[in-house]
């Protein structure tokens, strides 16, 4: 039981991170009906920028934990946001209206370019990061098995919940959110109401990239090591989460992320840690075959 609880806590943390990345996939799909294949690398840049900024801040003598967390986030979010904006401008907008695979190919091109750039600048080996949020506490202990919660896990889950509340408010209560939903439901009509559709699409890419950047920061703290190759796998997992929850649905992305995180944690605990990726991608294949609309997705026919 204690072992299960421990895995649930770890799975929840991982799931929150998958969910944050998955939102970028789902929002972009919702508005332009295409998968942003360069999205995983946005997350990876978030992690690498974290390494760089921590080093820089450290050399400036800034060390206290919460200052570092806040400053790194403030520095990383704009960078990843700009990268999200660039993906849309370079890979998606010029090819809008051409055959459907064209933007996907150019997005994959951008993501390979970025992987190689980071590999070239930062090297192919794992980069270690100092521990930024140390410590934790024991939740319960019985039969000599302590259930540990790291402070960082609390930070990750609380921050994710706060971001979800903020995002939901943004989508449902603000002018931008309304414009965004209008574009999702009928882009031509949105234009006829004077909505600047290009700007709304750009903002959607930026928003998704900002969240992926935050996930990148958290993962760097969580695993204390980053690699130029991380974006690919995490991207694919988050994409799985988005499909599982129902691509196009923001609550679905979060739910899919949580489920995937939990499944992965349980799978590695009770079956085999080597094959945990196998579990994630089996889910992707099964969902695509048996329920392509995912848990909370709408059937495609409703799309105008």
């Amino acid at each position: 039981m204690e072992y299960f609880l421990q895995q649930a806590i770890n799975g929840l943390t991982l799931g929150a991170i998958y969910g944050l990345i998955a939102i970028g996939y789902t929002m972009v799909y919702g508005i332009i009906g295409m998968i942003n294949f360069a999205h995983g690398e946005v997350f990876m840049i978030g992690s690498f920028l974290t390494v760089i900024f921590i080093t820089v801040l450290g050399s400036l003598g800034i060390h206290p934990t919460f200052t570092i967390i806040a400053l790194v986030l403030l520095l990383v979010i704009p960078f990843t946001g700009v990268w999200g904006w660039s993906i849309e401008r370079a890979a998606y907008r010029p090819l809008r209206g051409s055959f459907r695979l064209a933007p996907l190919i150019s997005a994959i091109g951008m993501s390979i370019f970025l992987q190689n750039l980071v590999q070239f600048l930062q090297g192919a080996r794992n980069k270690p990061i100092p521990v930024v949020v140390p410590g934790g506490f024991t939740l319960v202990e019985s039969d000599g098995f302590p259930v540990q919660v790291r402070w960082l896990q609390i930070v990750i889950v609380v921050m994710t919940v706060a971001l979800m509340i903020g995002l939901t408010t943004l989508i449902h209560r603000t002018r931008f959110g309304r414009a965004q939903r209008a574009c999702e439901q009928d882009m031509k009509m949105a234009m006829l109401l004077g909505i600047d559709v290009n700007r709304t699409i750009s903002a959607t890419f930026v928003l998704g990239a900002g969240l992926a950047g935050i996930a990148g920061v958290m993962v760097a703290y969580y695993y204390n090591v980053v690699n130029f190759y991380d974006g690919f796998l995490a991207g694919l997992k988050a994409f799985t989460a988005a499909v599982l929850g129902g691509i196009g649905s923001v609550p679905g992305a979060m739910l899919g992320g949580l489920l995937l995180g939990l499944i992965e944690a349980m799978w590695s605990a009770y079956f085999s840690i080597e094959y945990k990726d196998f579990a994630a991608f089996s889910i992707l294949v099964l969902v695509l075959i048996f329920r392509p609309t995912g848990i909370l997705g709408r059937p495609e026919i409703e799309k105008v």
């Binding site: 309304r178 939903r181 209008a182 009928d186 109401l193």
Partner: peptide, 25 residues
């Protein structure tokens, strides 16, 4: 302003949200 062919009401938004979107400009 145009009320287009087929009406193009936003199907998953309330009447009031549709009207609010009309007020964009």
């Amino acid at each position: 302003a145009q009320s287009p062919e087929g009406r193009r009401v936003f199907p998953r938004m309330t009447v009031e949200e549709n009207l609010k979107l009309g007020a964009t400009v």
